[in-house]
Design a binder for these strands. Sequence first.
DNA 1: AATGAATGAGAATTCATTCAT
DNA 2: TATGAATGAATTCTCATTCAT
Lengths: 209, 209, 209, 209
Amino acid sequence: MSSNNANRKVRRAVKPQRSHGKARVETILVAAAEVIGDKGYDRATMAEIAERAKSPIGSLYRFFPNKEILANALLDRYAVLINAAFDAIDHVASDLPVETLADTLLELMVNLQTETKALASVLEANAKWTKRPKFPELFLQRLIKVLRHRAPELSANDAQNVAAVLMHNLKTMRAITFGKGIATGPDVAAELRLMNRLYLLNRLTPNRK
Amino acid sequence: MSSNNANRKVRRAVKPQRSHGKARVETILVAAAEVIGDKGYDRATMAEIAERAKSPIGSLYRFFPNKEILANALLDRYAVLINAAFDAIDHVASDLPVETLADTLLELMVNLQTETKALASVLEANAKWTKRPKFPELFLQRLIKVLRHRAPELSANDAQNVAAVLMHNLKTMRAITFGKGIATGPDVAAELRLMNRLYLLNRLTPNRK
Amino acid sequence: MSSNNANRKVRRAVKPQRSHGKARVETILVAAAEVIGDKGYDRATMAEIAERAKSPIGSLYRFFPNKEILANALLDRYAVLINAAFDAIDHVASDLPVETLADTLLELMVNLQTETKALASVLEANAKWTKRPKFPELFLQRLIKVLRHRAPELSANDAQNVAAVLMHNLKTMRAITFGKGIATGPDVAAELRLMNRLYLLNRLTPNRK
Amino acid sequence: MSSNNANRKVRRAVKPQRSHGKARVETILVAAAEVIGDKGYDRATMAEIAERAKSPIGSLYRFFPNKEILANALLDRYAVLINAAFDAIDHVASDLPVETLADTLLELMVNLQTETKALASVLEANAKWTKRPKFPELFLQRLIKVLRHRAPELSANDAQNVAAVLMHNLKTMRAITFGKGIATGPDVAAELRLMNRLYLLNRLTPNRK
DNA sequence: AATGAATGAGAATTCATTCAT
DNA sequence: TATGAATGAATTCTCATTCAT
């Protein structure tokens, strides 16, 4: 809302030395996720986040020098979870039937969402000003990796494009599962699952089509 | 001056009397679409919208008594275009092959976007406070209508769910076509088109499955 | 940012923690009394009050979250003084000749005015929107108490009505003493004192009438 | 609320030439009295006054070039009524018993109020910035005239001071009769009447005291 | 002359960020 | 070092007044 994005030293989230600090940072991130998830990035105030975290606002600023850095920390935290989830999938990807793989990938974001529920909204809010979209990049790379693992015959280009569509499907899945409005709910999720399966079957199965 | 939330007339966007005014309103709407599309609803300021429209702030408020009403006007304007687009499709829907219908629907939002460029982003911004999600509802209803027209054997429930997935595909198509980040571009759009075709073929063709 | 009238905490004047803050609040209150007393509630701007108090506008809002709360704080502050003044009178009321009591009461508001100069004007300004007229009520109750103390034979009803007239006399006394226009000045005050004495003598002395 | 009181040509309310215009002006004044009486001078908007008068805002400004002039016109209109009321009293003043005269004067403002109910609030609102307090002056002069008529032995000075107190009593009467808050109502009015009688009896009856 | 749309200075209020303690 | 009070730029919205039609 204010300004001063320019001529400011490059700053990052401070990594706390003491274990006490780590817990504090974790609490703040959880609080931030909740408040931002609830109100959206712009309407979430640093004061409310601090209050929800039962942390003095001064401490909050100690660890996260400004709101943007806090939001980015949220993303980083999310990235860790994503990597872990993909790591788990990587191990079994080649043994899974395509349909199962399709379903598994689709559920991935939902499962993450369950853990870090409100995080997602940060993404959209941030998308408007974040300079480096490293987060979607990571996501895409991990999807490409899974695809090439499962279907080595897929060209690099195809893998990239299929992964992109997949990524959008995951986003859609999240919206369908956690969204409040119209076009949500379990029945719609089932439809999406069907579409996703049809698509991956077509693209990952050599002799079809 | 102060509060007086009670006993205040219901406020709507004013329809300009003078012919000059109509152009002015149009200019404001375009400016609002651009600024909101660019910065998002919360970060878009009425002052910037006014400036972009080369309109004094007072005039802006004359036509749109507050920011929310302005955003709703944007939505209404978009709704008109959507209805027109669907009307055009309705006429030819039953004669089209499923694949063509699938592609046509998918392009719909892209075509709209071309005309009312940044409008779409208002939707998400608004989602946070809009009481009645009449806009997505409209979209969904029109999709259902097309589907039932083309595949009368589809149950009401199925039509609703398929339409929901379709709607998400349209959104995705918009993101892919106009998005700036990763996972965008013509190749990805082609993939999405493929998926969308596979899905509709499966759901709208009676004896397959 | 926008509305959110619901689910918002009840807002009150903040009590400053730091010792410096207490002086600041006092300064603001004095400045507010002066500016509001001078210009009236509506024409007094928060910016001018802040400036007069040599306080940044943000600080003003820190202590008094909005204009209405500031005005109420002014009233509360005044109420404390009034109570103290009446307490002092209560102790001697029964021993005073009626004429002296009459004069003493009449001077009360003038004395208060001397200390909290422009406070009074807030009352009228506030009359327009204050929900609970607790302040005049307090005044009236204290007057009733004095009257019944001094003349126990007065019925509750009579005491209430006499007190009401007395209260108006006090207001008049203030206007005469501090007013700028016509019908003010010491000679007029002397006349008012006479009238007030005549009236109380008539109402509080048992066997006259 | 805005400014520009300085360096502006001296302007007055335009006197309409046509009879149609006179009716229009009257309507506007009535509307202004109602709206200002209802909301207070500052919160009353020119637009609402125009609307209530069913007069285009442009017309309103034609007759009353700004808000202050409109308010002054309201006062002038009131003055005419006051003069008429005093004229009526002047004719009978010398024949009336003091008590009756006292009551008659006290009712005067109430009677006026009945006709131009909301006018009163303009006085206070205007008192803050009106340069020439000609209105209270008129009132006072007419009261002095009545007093000297009825009690020629009263010194000029005494007449002035008694009239001043009387004037305040009239104001009080108005507040008691039309006020909404505490210390109002018919019983309080009866008490005020008593006080007023006692006072005038004392001051206007030669051999008492 | 009459009208009411257009204007923009000014008012209240918020909140990210700083810094005295 | 930790805290939370203090700050002021930025934002939304109003309304007296003007002036094109």
